[in-house]
Amino acid sequence: MSEGALPKDDAVLRVDDLQKSFGGLAATDHATFAVERGTITGLIGPNGAGKSTLFNLITGFYTPDGGTVEVNGTDVTGMEPYEVADHGLIRTFQTPRKLEGMTVREAMLVGSRNQPGESFLTLLSSPGTVAESESANLAEVEQILADFEIDHLATQPATDISGGQMKLVELARAMLAEPEVLLLDEPVAGVNPTLAKKLKDQIRRLNGQGTTFLLIEHDMEFVMDLADPIVVLDQGHVLTEGTPKGVRNDDRVIDAYLGGGA
């Protein structure tokens, strides 16, 4: 039994027999695994193994050809991304997303959920409610920015900060949405070691406060240090799952990385 075989009693995310092909290429090939509540689960695999595709399938950006995705016991297969988010699952993207023409705190504020001011009619009918929630959300943004030690960036244009700071802002913003499970796609790719360490500390801290993480990462040292268990993906299917140590010493994993899965 090679697939995600560890026993999971309290899975916050369950992926079952998921399939997706692009033309003739099976980018996701009957993938099955689960993410246990409270863990930092790593998702690794060689380039092109289908990790990002899997994220897109889980979050509703792609529609699977077959299989199911469950979040908190609810089948979310085929739902719109915003509906999946409503079930407590938030994601970030591999390439940082820039918000043209926004300040950092403005871009952060987009992350808050259930804002009464997002309803056009409420804006006109009860501006008082909007003002109240806006002040509260802004205070929360300032708090989170302070927790991440980037409060000095609050009023900077969101496009003027470094790539690493952008990754921090993305993580901070995702946390504003108060997810139960957060999917991070290569959070430290292209980030300098100091900021990478900072990101690692933050992820640990947030995990300690109860957020479950599923993270894709290329930086082996980073992921081995942070995540347990680790799911290994190769050519669209789950090769194995285990502790960092177990995975590192698994011949199939070494083969997949060295031989491109041959």
């Binding site: 950006f61 991304p81 918000l99 001011g117 997002e118």
Partner: peptide
């Protein structure tokens, strides 16, 4: 307002707005 903010997010990156649950 939050409404206008979501619209601007869509203008510069619609996928980001979707990922954030809009």
């Amino acid at each position: 307002s939050p409404w206008g903010r979501v619209l601007r997010t869509i203008r510069s990156d619609e996928d980001l707005a979707r990922a954030l649950g809009k």
